[in-house]
C-alpha cells in the first residue's frame, strides 16, 4: 500500500527535477512512451508507470524495477513525448538514485556490464573491448559466447586485441572522481547541485 503524502510527493518530484532538469509532474499519462518503447514488453513496470510512480513517490517500486536497467536510452520516448519530458534522462536519474541508495539490481548482468564498462574506461581512458567482453562473459558464466565473433572482428581490425590508452589519464580520473561524488554523497549532493 502506497501512502499518498503531499510532502514526499512534492519532494520526490523536486528531487528528480533538480537532478535531471525534467518536471515529471507534467506527464499526463498518455502512454506514448510505453507504446513506442522497444523493450517495454520485457519490463516489470512500464515507462508510463515509471513516470507515474515518480510523480507520487512510489520509490520502492520504481528504484527496484527492472525497467530503469532495461532502458536502452534510445530516446524514442523522449522524442515523442507530447509533454516534452526527456524520459530517457529521467530513467538515467532514477538509475543514479537507485545505485546511490543501494537498491539491489534486478538485472545483475546489465548493471555488471555497466560497471565493467566504466572500470575499463577509468583504467585506460578508453574502452578495451576485448577485456570487457571476456570479463562480462565470465561474469555471466558463458565464457565461450562470443568466441566465433572474435576471429572475424580481429581479422577485419574492428577490435584491437591489445587495447590502448589515452595520454592524459589524470583528467579521466578527475571526471570519475566527480561522478563518484554524486553516488557517494547523495542525497547531500542534491543540495550542492541546487546551488
Amino acid at each position: 500500500m502506497l501512502q499518498l503524502n503531499a510532502e514526499t510527493v512534492h519532494t520526490c518530484r523536486d528531487t528528480i527535477k533538480r537532478l535531471s532538469g525534467e518536471d515529471v509532474s507534467r506527464c499526463f499519462q498518455c502512454g506514448k512512451c510505453t507504446a513506442g518503447c522497444p523493450v517495454a514488453i520485457d519490463m516489470d513496470v512500464t515507462p508510463n508507470q515509471v513516470m507515474r510512480l515518480a510523480q507520487i513517490n512510489g520509490r520502492e517500486r520504481v528504484l527496484a524495477s527492472s525497467t530503469i536497467w532495461l532502458c536502452l536510452s534510445c530516446e524514442t520516448c523522449s522524442t515523442r513525448c507530447p509533454a516534452d519530458i526527456d524520459i530517457a534522462k529521467v530513467m538515467d536519474t532514477l538509475r543514479k538514485i537507485s545505485v546511490a541508495e543501494g537498491y539491489p539490481s534486478p538485472e545483475p548482468a546489465i548493471t555488471g556490464f555497466h560497471r565493467l564498462f566504466l572500470a575499463s574506461v577509468e583504467k585506460y581512458g578508453r574502452l578495451n573491448e576485448l577485456e570487457l567482453s571476456i570479463k562480462h562473459n565470465l561474469a555471466i558464466m558463458k565464457p565461450t559466447k562470443d568466441i566465433r565473433l572474435a576471429v572475424g572482428l580481429f581479422s577485419k581490425g574492428k577490435i584491437n586485441p591489445f587495447g590502448g590508452k589515452v595520454k592524459d589519464r589524470e583528467r579521466v580520473k578527475k571526471i570519475f572522481a566527480e561522478s563518484q561524488r554524486f553516488v557517494k554523497v547523495y542525497p547531500e549532493s542534491i543540495e550542492r547541485e541546487a546551488e
Binding site: M1, L2, Q3, N5, V45, Q49, R52, I56, R61
Partner: peptide, 15 residues
C-alpha cells in the same frame, strides 16, 4: 481514504 493509482498500478492510501 483507500483507492488505487491505476496508472502506476498500485493501491494507495491518503490520510
Amino acid at each position: 481514504v483507500r483507492g488505487a493509482d491505476t496508472l502506476a498500478g498500485v493501491p494507495v492510501e491518503v490520510e
